[in-house]
Amino acid sequence: MNTTADASRLAGIQPGDTLPERFFTTDIIQSMLYNAVLWNAHRIHFDEPYAKNVEGYPGLVTAGPLLGDWLHQCLEEWLGEDGRITAIEYSNRIASYIDETVHSGGTVTACDHATGEVTVDVFIKNEAGDVITPGVATVRFTDA
């Protein structure tokens, strides 16, 4: 852990800073692995006729917590080893579907240079530009 580097990293952070965006496209294989890891057998994730005809979705649905995980990855890839996520609040507003490309991003809204606590608005947007998973996270830079 390099204290000097961490301190200078935090010193350069201010409200309005944006996080690097990342694009995600989940194919049916990744979706299968994710739901298997969860032990999630809901047919809307792997049975296309069921998802469309019974539950009325336009396609196979991406599992909601996967979108939540991507918010965390967006934050952690920006933080690197300089800090940790201490809290996050998010909601799944709009469904996402297999083979759809979505992207994550965020904006710093508050920064306490004394404590190292930084608040970030994060999002997952779909191709139409709608925010499908909005969130607010608190991160703490170490060695503040």
């Binding site: 995600f24 989940t26 990744q30 692995l33 994710y34 298997a36 890891v37 917590p65 996967l66 939540g68 995980d69 991507w70 965390h72 990855q73 952690e76 890839e77 996520i85 996050i88």
Partner: peptide, 18 residues
Amino acid sequence: ATGNRQRKYLDGDEAPPM
């Protein structure tokens, strides 16, 4: 399965959030 790109998680050295 989540598409994580960080080595410490892919190697299982630490659990990612969630």
